[in-house]
């Protein structure tokens, strides 16, 4: 049985919790958190499994496959992201927030929403690769370390989001 649906945590408390996890990563590992790199490792492994010659001839995939001595899925970020899924599931179950659903505003159709989700994911992959990290690996991690590129990146994420918001209003409101 699911417990009743509970309201979200105060954003400042959740932020402190997230910040302490990030601080623990710095102190224990000497690196921050991330997400997009796990997708890159997984994709490199997939392409290598389906078309090994193609993957090994590609400079990008080759970077993740290495000399073949280590399995591409035996990567720090892959383990971390599996943890993210587990942690989110634990929190969601405790708060009664696990539901199979499509998130969208009242005016958007499910098909349009899913199409946008796919397109947004593709854009995100490009942005994260150009920036050498996403909101986790760059904005959050580099933000706390006062990394120059991370702050430039973070400001531009908000600029890009607000610039595109008006055109996507139909999907959310």
């Amino acid at each position: 049985m699911m417990p009743p649906r509970r309201p979200y945590m105060n954003p400042y408390l959740a932020g402190i919790g997230l910040g302490l996890v990030l601080l623990a990563a710095f102190v224990i590992m000497g690196r921050g958190l991330g997400a997009s790199g796990a997708f890159s490792s997984t994709m490199s492994w997939l392409v290598n499994a389906v078309a090994p010659e193609h993957a090994q001839a590609n400079e990008y995939f080759q970077g993740y496959l290495g000399d073949g001595s280590t399995h591409p899925l035996k990567a720090w970020l892959v383990f971390e992201v599996i943890g993210v899924a587990a942690g989110a599931l634990i929190s969601g179950l405790l708060a009664g927030r696990v539901h199979v659903t499509v998130e969208k505003g009242p005016r958007a159709s499910t098909a349009a929403r899913l199409l946008c989700a796919f397109a947004g994911g593709m854009l995100m992959a490009f942005g994260a690769h150009l920036a050498r990290g996403c909101t986790s690996g760059q904005a959050l991690t580099g933000g706390a370390l006062l990394n120059v590129g991370s702050w430039a990146f973070m400001i531009m994420v908000f600029v890009g989001g607000y610039a595109a918001a008006w055109f996507m209003r139909w999907q959310w409101r």
């Binding site: 854009l123 490009f126 942005g127 996403c134 990146f153 531009m156 890009g160 607000y162």
Partner: peptide, 9 residues
């Protein structure tokens, strides 16, 4: 990259 990612967001 930040700009593209923000739009994708």
């Amino acid at each position: 990259g930040g700009l593209v990612l923000g739009v994708g967001f």
